[in-house]
Design a protein around this nucleic acid. Structure first.
Lengths: 191, 191
DNA sequence: TACGGTGATGTCGCAAGGTGACATCGATGG
DNA sequence: CCATCGATGTCACCTTGCGACATCACCGTA
């Protein structure tokens, strides 16, 4: 085969997205993906840790932006996380809404991909918590702020991708955070 | 081999726990597990969906108890979830603390097992959210209460399994929920 | 132009996960 | 004594993922 094709990684990602969309994740072999990209199966595994990773390349970038946004503020922990997510929403989820929807439906259709997404989200939360702790917060406080912030983002994101939604992701995040505060504040105390 | 050995499922679970603890998850093959239990690899796959499931048999029971506890109260949603978790903590995490710790350390040492645990927790949250919605709550409210309740449980659980902790899980849950309320309530509003 | 190094890719083989199809055994009922 | 049925064993197979090695393009240098 022709070697040194440009952007091997990008072409493999595109091929994987196409094939997962056409046949589903399980019905697509790594050999299929590599063939569509004009490459070998072994090359795929050199660029991606496993078959699922082809759909999660952006998560590293997302973590980077999020951590920086949390660092660059001195607000209260929860507010810092929510603000950071709203900024991320404006940067990373502004365009290509069609591709985002396709990706979402592919993940939704495969338990394995859902597991991987949960892991990515978990490591995102861990990174945010570490950042908050580095700012002098107590471990439990940092973890709780990070985890509940991520929860808000996930719920808002789910509402945003749902068909028939027109609000912006940033607005949905703020709205969802407000509702979380209402729910939690209503709690009486040591149950 | 001798057939019709009693409690094949239980013996496979025990064998898996032992071997994962001795060599780690990756260094243990399904054939190893089946051999230690005196059974065949194919029998393992008939009783468990995949290799990881041998460590997560209790999650169905946990979901059942949790859903019932949420159903049997008419408190505010967040309080209902927290109370339910505290009740579960007293029922399911009272004895066998040594086994719980072993299981926890095994999962902690394997990314694949962490992924599976996250999925189990996610389906737990979904079940609780469904239960809350059945009580007439709005979708977003139900999801947020369920997810943040689970977050509280996870953080409390992490503190509880950590070496050198002596507080009860139920108390840690209440304490963590209080701290979450403090963090979220401190938030100013629409960022 | 020739030469050697370097890095990305292809080729091959293999252990392990996971599954379908079929054989086999034990118990149970007639 | 035989038929049946459900749980298990056996075999063959595909796919994932990886180690080891060969190969090609490119690049600097003489």
């Amino acid at each position: 085969m022709a070697r040194w094709q440009p952007d091997a990684r990008g072409r493999l990602e595109a091929a994987a997205l196409e094939l997962f969309g056409e046949r589903g994740f399980d019905q697509t072999t790594v050999t299929d993906i590599a063939a569509r990209a004009g490459l070998d199966k072994r090359t795929f595994y050199r660029l991606f840790g496993d078959k699922r990773e082809a759909l999660f390349s952006g998560s590293g970038h997302l973590e980077e932006i999020l951590v920086r946004a949390v660092t660059d503020t001195d607000a209260d922990p929860f507010e810092a996380v929510i603000t950071a997510f709203r900024r991320v929403a404006q940067v990373m989820f502004a365009d290509r809404l069609d591709l985002i929807r396709v990706r979402h439906s592919i993940i939704e259709a495969s338990p394995e991909l859902q597991e991987r997404e949960l892991r990515k989200i978990g490591s995102l939360a861990a990174a945010v918590a570490t950042t908050l702790r580095a700012k002098g917060l107590h471990e439990t406080t940092a973890t709780l702020a990070a985890e509940s912030g991520i929860t808000v983002f996930r719920v808002a994101y789910a509402r945003w991708v749902a068909p028939g939604s027109d609000a912006s992701l940033a607005d949905l995040i703020a709205e969802t955070a407000t509702e979380l505060r209402t729910i939690v504040s209503a709690w009486g105390g040591r149950g």
